[in-house]
């Protein structure tokens, strides 16, 4: 995969470059800030851009850079790396795009397998969300809807959490050692119990449905 990288921390940038190369990816350009990356990518094609959220242009250059990149290269995948998994940033990232986009903790992409899996999923158009954050969002659900989430079976809650991570049906099936057909059934049950009416075939829309639902819980207060 052709990868572009912008990160202002030299140590982390160099480490990520080495790991990307070891994983067999082609690093087409790397920059210490967002503006430099945008300039480099006007002439260099890439499949996914990896962006540090907190880098120049300050304060959250990764997000501004992503907006510009998405406008100039709609097919370019975007992977945000951050030291913090905050739902505030997740919502802002999903405002930039809901396809080929990801948000992960910096210390959680430190293996060839995880890094490649993350990049491949983004390359395939999926949303990838840091599991810690997805789990927190599901567990933090409050108020009336907390009872609704509590009404889900343990298995359904696991499926919901993996849905919030952006996993596909097959991905969820693989994680839980069940058949994709069983996953579909669980999802149908979840949607009924949560009162959501969304085309279950549209993968990213269903992630959004979950997140929108969870966000509405947060904002209701």
């Amino acid at each position: 995969m052709r990868v572009a990288l912008a990160e202002d921390g030299t140590l982390f940038r160099e480490g990520l470059l080495m790991l990307l190369r070891a994983a067999g990816h082609q690093v087409v350009c790397s920059a210490a800030d967002g503006d430099e990356l945008v300039a480099l990518l006007t002439t260099t094609p890439a499949d996914v851009a990896i962006l540090d959220i907190r880098m120049p242009p300050e304060p959250d250059g990764g997000l501004i850079t992503a907006e510009r990149l998405r406008a100039a290269h709609p097919d370019l995948g975007l992977l945000f790396l951050s030291h913090y998994a905050e739902s505030h940033y997740l919502m802002r990232i999903l405002e930039i795009g809901t396809e080929s986009i990801g948000y992960r903790l910096k210390e959680k992409v430190g293996s060839v397998e995880v890094l490649t899996d993350t990049l491949n999923r983004i390359g395939n158009g999926e949303i990838v969300i840091e599991p810690v954050l997805a789990k927190r969002l599901v567990e933090r659900t409050r108020g009336d809807k907390k009872d609704v989430v509590a009404a889900l079976s343990d298995r359904e809650q696991e499926v919901l959490r993996l849905m919030a991570e952006g996993r596909s049906n097959n991905g969820i099936a693989g994680q839980l050692y069940i058949t994709p057909k069983a996953v579909k059934k669980h999802i149908a049950n979840i949607f009924v119990k949560l009162g959501l009416h969304i085309d279950t075939a549209a993968h990213h829309r269903r992630v959004l449905a979950v997140l929108t639902y969870l966000r509405s819980q947060r904002n209701q207060g």
Binding site: G9, L11, F12, E14, G15, L16, M18, L19, A22, A23, R54, H83, K106, E107, K108, V109, G110, S111, V112, L115
Partner: peptide, 22 residues
Amino acid sequence: LHDGAALRISALTLRLGLLEHR
């Protein structure tokens, strides 16, 4: 804390990943 210790530790996880690969 963020720009110093935290970033160094995150970079360490990448170095370990490289070691694992090798």
